[in-house]
């Protein structure tokens, strides 16, 4: 494996277009221009069909841009062989059952490093580290389909992060999870971001989680970036968001209606903002 020099930007897209090939011929990305710095925790939001997953798959290198330019971890990632891509960018599928395929939990996690030519000793060590970290070590001998949905989702993440990608893309990590499980997964991503400096890109529909975890929000609409910025700034532009299926969290909508400044985006922020405005 060769190491790449650290670049300041994890993702740079300029006029990125992507058209699905015949017979569908859908122009899913119609000129996306976006910059995501290294170490960012970004959320891609937008309605079904707005281009979120197509953008994520271009960034992951699975899809080759039709037009425009795209550099990921300093390189045109779609030109790389899968083994070269894997240490730069990892993509966790929305449905873990589309990704898991080995007979044992341990094998599913070891599959990536084995294909990267990592030595057996190192594989032992890194698989164990990741399984312990994701609280799957005690389940390492089980068949993945004996795990709960939440455990399978964590296993799908384990099988990717074991290859230590610089950028981790997680498509809808909270589908089919209750709020407590969703937070566990977001906490895990936040930990990877904080401790290893991993750039996190997550696609989600849950704006409460975006408000709590993401530091940058990219709003997709009709194959383009409609808005991007920190969550507070994006959620304050309710007028522009109206044409998307994005509704800021209820506390942010309350803040906009009542003119609370700065705009609260979480429950504790809303409480404090309201208490400040109450007569003594």
């Amino acid at each position: 494996m060769t190491s790449t020099p650290p670049a300041a930007l994890a993702v740079v897209a300029e006029g990125l277009e992507f058209e699905y090939p015949a017979p569908r011929r859908i122009l899913a990305l119609k000129g996306v221009t976006v910059r995501i710095p290294e170490g960012q925790f970004a959320a891609i939001v937008g309605q079904n069909g707005s281009g979120k997953t197509s953008l994520a798959r271009c960034i992951s290198g699975y899809l080759r841009p039709t037009r425009g330019s795209l550099r990921v971890a300093g390189t045109e990632v779609w030109r790389l062989r899968p083994s070269q891509r894997a240490t730069r960018v990892g993509y966790v599928f929305q449905n873990p059952d589309h990704q898991l395929f080995r007979e044992r939990v341990w094998d599913d996690v070891a599959f990536g490093p084995q294909n990267l030519g990592v030595s057996p000793d190192q594989i032992q060590e890194s698989v164990e580290r990741v399984l312990r970290r994701l609280e799957l070590w005690d389940k390492r001998e089980l068949h993945p389909f004996q795990l709960s949905r939440g455990d399978r989702q964590r296993l799908a993440i384990a099988a990717i992060i074991v290859m230590r990608p610089q950028i981790l893309i997680v498509d809808e990590p909270t589908t089919g999870q209750d709020m407590a499980r969703s937070r566990e997964i977001m906490d895990l991503l936040a930990g990877l971001n904080r401790e290893q400096g991993m750039t996190i890109l997550t696609i989600t529909h849950v704006m409460e989680l975006v408000a709590e975890y993401a530091r940058w929000v990219i709003v997709m609409h009709d194959g383009r970036v409609l808005l991007d910025g920190p969550p507070r700034q994006v959620f304050s532009r309710a007028e522009e968001l109206r044409i998307t299926a994005i509704n800021p969290p209820p506390v942010a909508r309350l803040g906009l209606t009542l003119g609370l400044d700065p705009l609260p985006i979480t429950v504790p922020e809303a409480r404090d903002a309201i208490l400040r405005r109450l007569p003594a």
């Binding site: 209750d178 709020m179 407590a180 409460e208 969290p249 209820p250 506390v251 309350l254 429950v267 504790p268 809303a270 409480r271 309201i274 208490l275």
Partner: peptide, 14 residues
């Protein structure tokens, strides 16, 4: 382990 609506949570905090 279930959360009510955000507004119900805010009510409780207020």
């Amino acid at each position: 382990g279930v959360r009510p609506t955000q507004m119900a949570e805010l009510s409780a905090r207020l």
